[in-house]
Amino acid sequence: MKAGPVLGVLAVIVALWYAGAVWLNAAWTYDQAARNGTVVTFGGLLADTMAQERPVLPPPHQVVAEVWKGMTAYNVTSKKSLVYHGYVTLVSTFSGFVLGTLLGILMAVGIVQSRTLELGMMPWAVISQTVPVVAIAPMIVVLSNSLGFGDHLGVSNALVSKTIIAAYLSYFPVLVGMVKGLRSPDQMQLDQLKTYNASEVQGFFKLRLPSSVPYLFTSLKVGIAASLVGAIVGELPTGAIEGLGARMLIGSQFGSPIIVWAALFAAAALAGVLILLVRALETVVVRRMGVRG
């Protein structure tokens, strides 16, 4: 992949963004000027649209400045710090991801081993993903509050509900990938194990499981992104005050677009980092398993 065209397109996007910021924010500038009885020059227009308090579309540098301020200006444990909110979202993303991955792998093993489960459960797994999880999210919140799962486990109930929502979104890619992966050994390999007199269990652990690893990692990359979406969505109906999703909600309620954009960028950066992490883990594991290249 060459960097040139990517940078070129990025530059065009940034340029369009600035143009859009001037165009969309101009109305407010003219409005203010008319109220004060001043005349807007072109230079004045440019300067004002770049630095409004509540712009319709904040220009990139304002967003970057807000992200930077959110990350460095406050103590990381402060509620104003983006690092803190990012951490809260990250914790529920990870717990949901782990739970979802385990669930997906277990269901895949069941489906590969049992024909009844395959025919009975697989359609429901598909249906579970066509159900918009956000519709269920408030109920999950109520349930985990009234049942008090979190109190038993020693964590907050909000974390439990966010974990469930994130797991719900992330188990499916893992399930699909693992079913494919566990079925990937071909007949010849299965026959060979039979000639070694390997049992079903040995065949599973020595052949099926190792051959599913590449499929697993492909799904994990999708799964962790889905898990982050789940964690953010899970923060919206919970009335959470912590986390990137809560930050967006607060920004929208106080009519402050820059906060929303900063949270959005932080979430995007988090997604990028998480996918890179899974990719790094994949490289390490694949190398340890002896695959070269």
Binding site: P5, V6, V222, A225, I232, V260, L264, A268, A271
Partner: peptide
């Protein structure tokens, strides 16, 4: 565009795009 826009598109497809909801409502 194929060399430039596609990698960006691939990246954006993995982002939590639901986050633009508050902006669109504004």
């Amino acid at each position: 565009l194929r060399a430039g826009l596609l990698p960006i598109g691939n990246f954006v497809a993995a982002l939590p795009i639901v986050g633009i909801a508050p902006i669109m409502v504004m």
